[in-house]
Design a binder for these strands. Sequence first.
RNA 1: GGCGAGGUAGCUCAGUUGGUUAGAGCACAGGAUUCAUAACCCUGAGGUCUGGAGUUCAAAUCUCCAUCUCGCUACCA
Length: 708
Amino acid sequence: MKNPKRYLITAALPYANGLKHIGHLAGAYLPADTYVRYLKAQKRDVVFVCGSDEHGTAIPIQATKEGTTAQAIIDKYHPIIAQNFKDLGIEFDVYHRTSSPLHHETAQEFFKVLNDHGDLEIKASEQYFDEAANSFLADRYIKGTCPNCAYESAYGDQCERCGKTLSPDELINPVSALSGNKPVKKGTQHWYLPLDRHEKFLSDWILKDHATDWRNTVVGQCKSWIDGGLQARAVTRDLDWGIKVPVAGAEGKVLYVWFDAPIGYISATKQWALDHGKDWKPYWQDKETKLVHFIGKDNIVFHCIIFPVMLQLHGDILPDNVPANEFMNLEGDKMSTSRNWKLEMQDYIDDFINKENGGPQLADALRYYLTQIAPETKDSEFTWKGFQDANNSELVNIFGNFVNRAMVLMHKLCNSKVPPIYPELFDELDTEAIKAITNSKEKVESLLEQYKFRDALFEVIDLARTGNQYMQKKEPWILAKQVDENGKIKVEAQRLIDNCLHICLQMTANLAILINPFLPFTSKKICHLLKVVDKILEWKNAGKFKLLSVGYTLRPPELLFRKIDDTEVTYQIEKLHKALEASKAISEEEKAAPAFVPVKSEIVFDDFAKIDLRVGKILSAEKVEKADKLLKLGVLLGFETRTIVSGIALHFKPEEIVGKQVTVVVNLAPRKMRGIESNGMILMAEDASGKLHFVNPEDAIGEGSTVN
RNA sequence: GGCGAGGUAGCUCAGUUGGUUAGAGCACAGGAUUCAUAACCCUGAGGUCUGGAGUUCAAAUCUCCAUCUCGCUACCA
């Protein structure tokens, strides 16, 4: 969309169950803030919305963990996260929260509109129910053994150890997190958003209309979803923390968090409008609004598939682009909260910005490095050494040094004033330096429009590099040695000096404008040094040569940045490893005192007698095609040889287990897996680490022997 | 297993519709300089573009096979 009337920029709503790390910052908030600052410098009509996502089951669960209420959790994290953003110069127009009444109304209205239009489906289903607590259990409230890694405290939606997404039915030995009882299945009904009805719309809109202007990774991810066939997704849940479903017969149900969260962008816009006496409607309903969502790749499906369908059904505009970033790793490994391998915004703020030698310049240092390594096209990696290098040898040595030497020389050789210019004395170097300013402006502008923040930032630094080269070639400090008999610099030499420093100072003013979207604190500081008002930072001034008036006295030089010391880097790396060790120690402790799987409900002897267990011997074993975990086993039972499919491929290699004796349930109903019929089940014992062991007789005995 | 995104210099990444000796920054080496935060500036070294095959006058770029990394997804009685 070219020259839209107004912009609405969103950054993913942080989930208010804990602190956010620099991966989140680099993925969504920093690029969004940079883009918004650029638009605002252009005096565009733009609103930048964000806020806390405060519903969903993880919040009440976190509350149980911390021994408090869900409300207390969100009231704790909402202000901290908001403050973290402020400290790092992420400046939202509104930082709202989904627990607000305004949001509840907005989300309910949204649901009603869809429901009234017949855009939702109601489906009955069976779900786990805790009879003791008299309540349905959300996925997150069911714990059990992970079928993937055998972790015993996996949640019904995801295993925190191996990270695999699960459904409650997959858990082995599911247990209610509320009462510890085994849950029962019970009928319930839910509202669904039938995405399958909108495949054509999505496919046309994304795969045709936006095939080229959206990022590869985003289009690819969407294609994968669309081609895979879209399914109806439940938009309600049986839970008491969230937004009540505003329809009769939906008692005890709330909107599913993924449904209400993106609507948070709309309610945040409403809040902003209320606060500023504006009308929010055009921002969501007028086609001349450019809506851009900044998110991480984990959010692509919601912002490119589900939310657009919702918006379209509700009659709102669609996003013009969703520049999702990939992930940022840390010192060679994935960032992970549970493993304690992370750098939280709060940590950086404490260790750098709020330190004695800190200040906002260190917020800019982080902003610089995170933009420079932004995972725009693939996963990237934060290293402390990289941070130090980027800060010291680019930001400080190139950019900071250029500004500083221009200021110092001006004070020494030009009487602390912006020197006059003599265009008739310009040589090629001078005109090229001036041209470089305009060039940079154009390049930066075009790159920012394409969401190429990394490249745009490089162009700004490159202008400072050009400035250094120019100054080096001009050597005003050498010219200053041409003095007359009174020790005064000769007039011709002084004129050349004046020209050089005038150009360098104008370049400095331009650098302040160009770097402003990226490093806002630095821009302010340059304005201070040049004694100009912030108004000069308006983008229309970029590329101009007459930003500073001749004869104007400037402030004494002051360093823009400081270097990052080796000791700071080693300290951070040690801290990181110590945190990892600490979290390892904790999980060791948990292992030492394992949470035993609760004993199942009592059975009578007859129940047990129904199970026919026999000793068998594995004669053959091979991997099942197209399945990671399955082995097809040929098992000798004495009276016959059976084919049994077993999910142990991750634990055993086929050749290792041939010849082993095993215990087999032989009267289990046959079941097809990956097209192969399995006739029985191999018993496995599982240790604390999740490793599987065969259960077999102490001495080899005849195959087919009974086990009682 | 399927799908998606990647694999280019020690590191971080560019390489548009296939077209001269594959580029940049950082790091490294040598030189020059002193206005500047031991900064800047100049020069240099460095790559069988993951491997293999094919199409073509011409392949980092197109096709196929293999392999590794990340993400989504399937299989677990």
